[in-house]
Amino acid sequence: MGKEGEELTEQETAIYDRQIRVWGVDAQRRLSKSHIFVSGLKGTVIEFCKNIVLAGVGSLMLNDDRLVTEELLSANFLVPSDENVTRGKSLAELCCESLKDFNPMVSVSVEKGDLANFDVEFFQKLDAVVISCCSLLTKKSVNAKCRKSPRRVAFYSVECRDSCGEIFVDLQNYSYSKKKNEETIECHLQYPSFEDAIAVPWRSLPMRTSKLYFAMRVIERFEELEKRNPQDVSAGDLPNVLKLRKELCEARCMNESQIPDLLLQRLLAARVEFPPVCAIIGGVLGQEVIKAISGKGDPLKNFFLFDAMDGKGIIEDISNINN
């Protein structure tokens, strides 16, 4: 075990005892020095924030200027359901207060502003960026800015619709070592950006690629073409979404049956978040960010897809890069 930096305090050792037994002291030390930014504070990201604050990251910055509405709080256990408390405050401000209380050793702060306007300078101070509830355009541009940073900024985007969820991971060039039968092996992974990943021709993907992956792409594209706000779709959009599916499938030489009507219908119809799925996706996302920061464990590449309907949590590698 290489020593780096100062030792953990007695308080840290006591609180983090059970997880140090999982990932070791060095990993814990690296976690405690990491800086993380999240944008779009709905249920899944809230779960994620809870997980990494408890785990003891160095700092967490929250970005979401929206004022609190009942709908925004449907899967948010951080904010008390008391209008006297919530009135006039942004979602980020309210979440910040309770997250601080979760773990006084983590510095939690609010970062105001439109996600699209943060620049490379801002992102390069960070170790990980997690975004949700933003347009496709913003998603691509934030990912690109993270990639321009001289030091690696791990990029994640997460989306939940109905009882389905998707995580995208971009660790750029990522090397880590792992132990296998007493031997230490060096592993290297190369990730595509979000833009490059979703541009991978559908017909080049294996037949058994998760249908949810394609369905998410159709709806994402629909929102972009219609200039909708993120997740501002409803069951009434189904006919137009089906039309778009036809176009996309024809253009990409894929059979439409790979994206079932019923699945699209479910993804469009959801009005409220589904807390158990938020917990599951937020749990997997939290674990991935901890892996990337601590350098412990195999990170997933590069999509994670979960559908509560069949209960499968699947990893898909959608890239042109062979590792």
């Binding site: 059970r18 999982v22 997980n51 917990a279 599951i280 939290g286």
Partner: peptide, 11 residues
């Protein structure tokens, strides 16, 4: 002592 982390519990 059983090893335990927040993320697995959330899942």
């Amino acid at each position: 002592i059983v090893h335990a982390v927040a993320t697995t519990n959330a899942i």
